[in-house]
Simulated assay, not measured.
Amino acid sequence: MQSRKQLPITNAVIHPVVLLGIVDHYNRACKNTRKRAVGILLGTIDRRGHAEVLNSFAVPFEEDERNPTVFFFDHDYVENMAAMFRKVTARERIIGWYSTGPQIRPADMGVHEIVQGFCSSGHALYVICQVDPKETGLPTEAYVSLEEDSVALEGSAPGQPRRIFEHVPNSIGALEAEEVGTEHLLRDVRNWSVSTLTGEVRAKLDALQSLRARLENIRRYLEEVASGNLPLHQEILHALQLVLKGLPRNAASSELTQAFAVCSNEQTLLIYVATLLRSVLVLHDLVNNKTELLETERKMEVAFSNATTAMDAPGSPTVADSL
């Protein structure tokens, strides 16, 4: 059975202000270019390995396009910025770094070892943020570096240690103040012409597409294991067995398929009726507004006509008489 080493960071929670800072950094410095944005992550790591990414700042970074292992990372800038942030929030420390990827590059391990020198725990968290995600789901991926025996690495001696990136579970979390600020920001970017029902249907569609993509990854992994291209991992197979055990026993029966079809048809019918009702109500409000506008214009015309008639009547005072 293949054993997995204990990760120095077991999971990471990334706050919205960090995501906003990464996107702003990318839009200012790297948009419409082949460059990527690189910066430092600030936060806390408890004894259980739970990382809270609370803040971030950008770092001057350059890569050689001809040689991907050659890069420039400004150490002095990181030290000065960390000292200034420590004066504002003493609780936040350097816990890792980020990049806009979109994938791991050859220079990442070198940058990771440099950032680890700034981390008090000796372990750094590496977060790749997709500023323009093509698939639904979380736009972030988190990694830590571990040493592994390179028995399967070509051109290296057996037993020689090498460092690899190991995936770390991550999620998006926010404090109460951050939730309020995020809601205010979403008010400016939200499309108010789209109904709530349409948004819920779109969210379910995105969730189904994300589920399909993950099932495709599982299928490809099992095919690679069956063909011998990937090693057998007992923890992954155990997790898949738990998922399969949770499915209904008669998943392939016609009764279950019909029950799902009936439930789906009923929900679709409710959505269709609700959409028709919403359209009728909108048209009704439009007709009422048009009627009220015509009535107001008619009253104004009658009032203007009465005023004109009163002024043209015999014996009515004129400007000359008043003089």
Rank of each mutant, 00 (worst) to 15 (best):
G155H: 10
L230N: 03
A307D: 14
R162Y: 09
V280A: 09
K299E: 15
A313Q: 12
T100L: 13
E113R: 06
G159P: 01
A152Q: 12
D108W: 10
V273R: 14
D285K: 14
F71V: 07
V243K: 03
N67W: 10
L138D: 02
Q2L: 06
D132L: 03
S254I: 04
R220K: 08
L256N: 02
H50M: 11
R28I: 02
A107L: 08
H50L: 15
L7I: 00
H284N: 14
S121N: 11
P248I: 01
P317A: 13
L208M: 13
G49C: 08
L208P: 00
V18Y: 03
T89P: 00
R278A: 14
V53D: 13
T308Y: 12
R202N: 11
Y26C: 03
V88T: 13
V287I: 15
G96T: 03
R219L: 01
E297A: 15
V115W: 06
A124F: 14
I114T: 11
Q103I: 03
Y26E: 05
R190K: 03
A303Y: 07
D76Q: 15
P68W: 04
D64S: 15
V53I: 15
E292C: 05
P102Y: 09
I114L: 15
R220W: 01
E154F: 11
N32C: 04
A320K: 07
E154I: 06
T140S: 04
R105Q: 02
D188N: 05
A51N: 00
R86T: 13
C129K: 03
F71R: 10
R298L: 08
Q116L: 00
S227H: 13
E178K: 10
V243L: 11
T33N: 07
Q209W: 07
Q160N: 01
I236E: 10
K290W: 05
A252M: 04
T89D: 14
I104F: 03
A124H: 10
L197K: 07
M81R: 07
E79P: 00
A307R: 13
N80G: 01
V59P: 00
V78T: 07
R91N: 13
T275C: 08
Y126H: 11
L277D: 03
A259W: 00
R187Q: 14
V273K: 12
L222V: 02
T196Y: 03
R212E: 09
H284P: 01
C129F: 14
A58N: 12
A58Y: 10
V287P: 06
V70K: 14
G117L: 13
L269Q: 13
K87Y: 07
Q130A: 11
W97I: 02
G246Y: 04
P248M: 02
E200H: 08
R66N: 11
E295K: 12
E216C: 02
E178H: 08
G49K: 05
G155D: 09
V280E: 13
C30K: 01
R298P: 00
P169L: 06
R34W: 12
Q209E: 14
V189S: 06
L283N: 11
L211G: 08
T89Y: 13
D74M: 09
Q241F: 09
V111W: 01
N229H: 14
Y143A: 02
L211A: 15
W97L: 05
A213V: 00
L270N: 09
P161Y: 05
E297I: 10
T275M: 09
E183H: 12
M109F: 07
